[in-house]
Write a protein that binds this DNA or RNA. Structure first.
Lengths: 344, 344
DNA sequence: CTGAAAGCGCTTACAG
DNA sequence: CTGAAAGCGCTTACAG
């Protein structure tokens, strides 16, 4: 017996057939208790661990989950979401004995090819579908590929996959309510791309909340989610004829860039301009002023998504899961507008 | 023929044996040109793509590379290195038909277990060894696991693995030279953990450059690389009896936090305090003042490391690779010290 | 409850 | 240059 022990070695040592070893090791019924004990201790003594490759071939499973990230490197770099999300996913996978196969592609063109490749090669048993877009083609594709999946948030069309959602509209709504209660009546929103569902969902939440709060002027500027574009949007807003007194950003990097633009223009934050971000990145806490933001628990989201996907792979029928909503956290970058604080 | 076509289907269609199909598909010598052509077109017509699982089992290869990241989530979130590094890795892997298996673990205890698991399960054919530490136990472990690897940077002990390095000391040196030439004589360094090789290497480079430039006072404060600890270190420095007029930070998140601390204390940057970062994160460009930093090309580093690891797996003997050094980029956060600008 | 055998879909010596 | 066969190390009906 050279090299690592195989199931045959265990069978020989326990004096049974390979098949029975397989049954015992996989906790399948129909093995006499004492036989099972004998097999298990033989395996233990030999230091046996089954070959994943052989299991993969005969059981037609990859024992791995796939995550394809299609983002411009510039956006990915500043975004705190994925590292935390992945850490959460891994916390569930390790115990389940599964691995995470990650594919980072530069654009949406190569994205579908990545899904096809991962599925075609039988690399994964299911996919995490993040960054959902309007009429997202990946849903039909993965369905056609006959693989289970879990979507982060609800798609804008019927989907065969369970959704694990974290309501981000509540956070945006709280941010607007907070600003309105401070007396702001001209509030702008620096939004993400309209075709990204979390971009448009936050924008809609902003507009609805602004209307509900009786905000007089509620402007929206769309961006590509990069800090650079957030800076550009901020400049446009501040150079406008009737600039807002508060800006709700759709992510933290843009809010940080917006803060820089304001300061550069000699506009004091929060005295002359209030700013809120989204994602509660650690760095926002250390800025001056520290950034009010909507805090999301990306790690918990990853763990929940992994649990649901694991269950889906095991063939369980699942309903959608709703996580605790993202919460608005007021720090120093929000304050009453100048006009409201000055005596009338 | 139901399901996806197998090598037997191709063999039948081309009228040859499975073995010959395998030879033709893998570009091995000893197949008559016209037979090869017949096999290839049969495969094409059937839409055949070989089963990775079967290949893995019979060839004893995983066709995947492993990356284990052991970092506190807080550090990972703010760090622009890994997203860019991974994007670079993937740019090489896709064409080679390999996948990236990612494991994110919360601490160094679970780290070695992750390497063992990935190797024991035969998940990967080699490892990327990043974030090298002093006397790094992973080098001996991976060697014992009999898998190839590539290290980012040179370990502090003899290593059986090729190293792909990007000299970051040149960037630190330029930063110090730049500050010294502006007239700074009290410069501090907010360093990473001394046990992390890139932390101590940058610290050593700082001290050497400070000495070479005749800097009078060169303080070093060690941190854990988090923004929070960078803020703490900055406060300590500024509250000292003879505070520095310039601070060289070992990464951008700490520099950004340090900027916040200074501004919060009413210290104007760069007029009263110069600041430099490390990594050239996009967000630094949009701060006010924009952050002078050492720019590294993490994506190119990832691509180079992947090429070297791929070659190592193919059994090539490799020498170490040196990438273009990280460059210091002066932006707005560095200026002459107050005393130097005031008339003597 | 247990054994013997076929099968997953490739690769790789070994013959001819 | 080509074929037939064994082997990679498991899982899974099928018999008993």
């Amino acid at each position: 017996m050279r090299g690592r022990p195989t199931i045959s070695d265990v069978a020989a040592k326990a004096g049974v057939s390979k098949g029975l070893v397989s049954f015992a090791l996989n906790d399948r019924p129909g093995v006499a208790p004492e036989t099972r004990e004998r097999i298990l201790s033989a395996a233990r003594e030999l230091g046996f661990s089954p070959s994943l490759r052989a299991r993969s071939l005969s059981s037609a499973r990859a024992y791995a989950l796939g995550l394809v990230i299609a983002r411009d490197p510039d956006i990915l770099r500043g975004d705190p979401f994925f590292p935390a999300f992945i850490a959460g996913v891994e916390s569930e996978l390790a115990t389940a004995g599964l691995a995470l196969v990650l594919s980072v592609v530069p654009d949406e063109e190569s994205e579908l090819a990545a899904y096809r490749r991962l599925a075609g090669d039988g690399r994964v048993d299911g996919f995490f579908l993040t960054d959902l877009r309007a009429h997202d083609p990946r849903i039909a594709l993965v369905d056609e590929l006959r693989l289970p999946a879990v979507t982060l948030g609800h798609p804008d069309a019927p989907s065969p996959f369970p959704a694990v959602s974290m309501d981000d509209t509540a956070g945006i709504t709280s941010a607007v309510e907070h600003l309105a209660s401070l007396g702001h009546s001209r509030i702008a929103h620096v939004a993400g791309p309209g075709r990204m569902l979390h971009g448009s969902r936050r924008r809609d939440a902003f507009l609805a909340a602004a209307e509900a709060c009786g905000v007089k002027q509620a402007l929206v500027v769309e961006t590509d989610f990069t800090a650079a574009d957030g800076a550009r949007a901020t400049r446009e807003l501040l150079e406008g004829s009737d600039p807002p007194t508060a800006v709700v950003y759709s992510n933290d990097p843009m809010a940080i860039a917006g803060l820089g633009v304001a300061q550069r223009a000699g506009i004091e934050v929060p005295r002359q301009l209030s700013i809120t971000g989204f994602d509660g990145s650690e760095i926002g806490e250390h800025l001056h002023p520290s950034l009010s933001s909507v805090v999301t628990d990306a790690s918990a989201w990853g763990a929940a998504a992994a649990r649901v996907l694991l269950a889906a792979i095991d063939g369980e029928m699942l309903h959608d899961t709703e996580l605790p909503p993202a919460r608005f956290l007021a720090r120093e970058s929000t304050a009453p507008p100048e006009t409201a604080t000055s005596p009338h």
